[in-house]
Simulated scan of single mutants.
Amino acid sequence: MINIEYDKAIFLDEANLRWQDDDILNCSKKIFSLDDDKETSLIKIEKDSTFHNSNKVNSVEIFVLDGIYSNEFGSFKKGTYLKLPREDESKITSTTGCEIFKKTNYKQNTVETSIVDTSNTYWSQGQGNLEVMPLSDQTALVKWPRDEVFVPHTHWGGEEIFVLKGTFMDEHGEYKIGTWLRNPHLSKHFPYVKEETIIFVKTGHL
């Protein structure tokens, strides 16, 4: 088990993690958190390879970081977000090779399916100068303009972040592209950026 202490803040830079071969699924992974069958990780699928079926998937949340990801619902390019109540792993493949950020078996109270092509979806005005793109219940992309400073705030139900572009900062450190952060319930911080930054954010689920 890796990083299952949900009452503690944690951050991991994917550049400091090594790819691990997953022979059961036929892919490579950089694992951020693993708790029994719940997993948060980066997954790399080689060109024209197909997943083996582990029969352990009851929900998935995916953001395609590179290449084309295919499953029984279709083929999805870089920048696509998927939230699915179930996925048939034996139908997962990639004609180009791809890399994805994936959360598995973190089933919410409501069954929800959401597929969003973020490259063709409008941003909405958020607090201050932030722009927000809702992806599903509790999940969104947030765009920070250069030199934006946010108000200090408390995370009710916690917060999880994956940095997609730029460098996210707070009083605890600097988190460049590819960094995953998890802040626990009632944690506090004062975030800001120096360059345009985009983060994948989940809130209230911890």
Rank of each mutant, 00 (worst) to 15 (best):
N3K: 00
N3C: 05
N3D: 06
A9K: 01
A9Y: 03
I10Q: 08
D13Q: 09
D21Q: 14
I24E: 11
N26D: 13
L34M: 15
S41E: 13
K44D: 09
I45Q: 02
K47N: 04
K47I: 08
D48Q: 12
T50S: 07
N53P: 00
V57G: 04
V60Q: 06
V64N: 03
L65Y: 02
S70N: 09
S70C: 13
E72C: 15
K78E: 08
T80E: 04
L82V: 14
D88A: 12
S90K: 13
F101Q: 03
K102R: 06
K102Q: 05
K102S: 03
K103C: 01
N109C: 10
E112C: 14
S114T: 05
S114L: 07
I115G: 12
D117W: 06
D117R: 06
S119H: 09
Y122D: 10
Q127D: 11
L130K: 13
T139D: 06
V142S: 13
P145E: 03
H153E: 14
G157E: 11
K165M: 08
G166H: 07
G166C: 06
T167Y: 00
G173L: 09
G173W: 07
K176Y: 02
W180Y: 15
L181V: 09
P184T: 02
H185S: 11
S187P: 00
S187T: 05
H189W: 08
H189L: 04
T197C: 03
I199C: 07
T203H: 02
